[in-house]
């Protein structure tokens, strides 16, 4: 059955009350006089006290969810964590039906706020790990050289300024750029460092390309003598990794790629 067109007109008083209450709950701000006009008192609670029950629930619920999703970022930001979360929710109110996705734009927000490169990498890696755990692992496919391939929904290719192990172990260290593939393995999020050449190849798959196109493109690029002598072994090793850990699927994927 096809979805019915959106033709329902809500009663104006419903729109009005939901405009007011949604703002009050998400911002925590309301005018007492208006609360008295819109809400009734209880025997031992004023309308404002009653409204506070919902306001007091919203913020801790969102904060707890973000803290669960970004534990290392939260510890690193320490006293600033709540302020950053508050600003994030103001900039990116939840548009998702589940709190699983509340932090979807958080790494982007960290970039926008121009927080430290360490925090930018940490938030990016933590989200990719979480994302990998709630994303589809599509069936491993037979790959021939002309099949258009794409990264699986559970995979994220990250270009970090710091070593991923230092980030997850929360060991501050000097900048040491590293590319990693974050993916789901046995239900958990994990990652694998990639050398620069492998990163180039998997970036092509990220956009959707065939095996032959990927390696044609690679051969058009300038390779060092060392890379040229080992390229064949490397290709076998990357494809073996990709197959073993289900990194690739057909393009376009048949499943939703939320």
């Amino acid at each position: 059955m096809q979805p019915t067109p959106n033709t329902l007109t809500p009663p104006p008083e419903l729109v009005d009350i939901q405009n007011w209450l949604s703002k009050a709950v998400t911002s925590g701000k309301f005018v007492k006089k208006e609360a008295n006009l819109r809400l009734t008192h209880a025997k031992n609670r004023s309308s404002s006290d009653r409204l506070m029950t919902y306001i007091d629930d919203y913020w801790p619920r969102c904060l707890e969810s973000l803290t669960d999703d970004f534990p290392r970022t939260a510890r690193t930001l320490d006293d600033e964590w709540e302020t950053v979360c508050e600003a994030y929710l103001a900039a990116y109110p939840s548009t998702q039906f589940t709190l699983y996705y509340l932090g979807k734009q958080f790494p982007q927000f960290i970039v926008e706020q121009q927080l430290s490169p360490w925090l930018r990498d940490l938030a990016q890696l933590e989200w990719a790990l979480l994302h990998s755990e709630i994303s589809a692992v599509l069936p491993t496919l037979a790959i021939d050289e002309h099949t258009i391939l794409k990264l699986q929904p559970h995979c994220s290719l990250l270009q970090l300024q710091f070593q991923a192990n230092d980030l997850v172990n929360e060991t501050p260290s000097p900048e040491a750029p590293q590319a990693v593939m974050v993916y789901q393995w046995d239900g958990d999020g994990t990652f694998e460092p990639l050398d620069p050449l492998a990163t180039r190849v998997f970036k092509l798959f990220e956009a959707g390309t065939s095996l032959s196109e990927a390696f044609d493109s690679l051969s058009e690029q300038e390779l060092t003598d060392d890379e040229l002598t080992t390229i064949s072994t490397k290709i076998q090793s990357w494809m073996s990794m990709a197959t073993q850990w289900s990194w690739l699927t057909h393009y376009p994927p048949k499943e939703n790629l939320q």
Partner: peptide, 13 residues
Amino acid sequence: HQGHYMHNLLPLP
């Protein structure tokens, strides 16, 4: 409301 979730169950008038 207006595409934003409150993640709570709010009563109706």
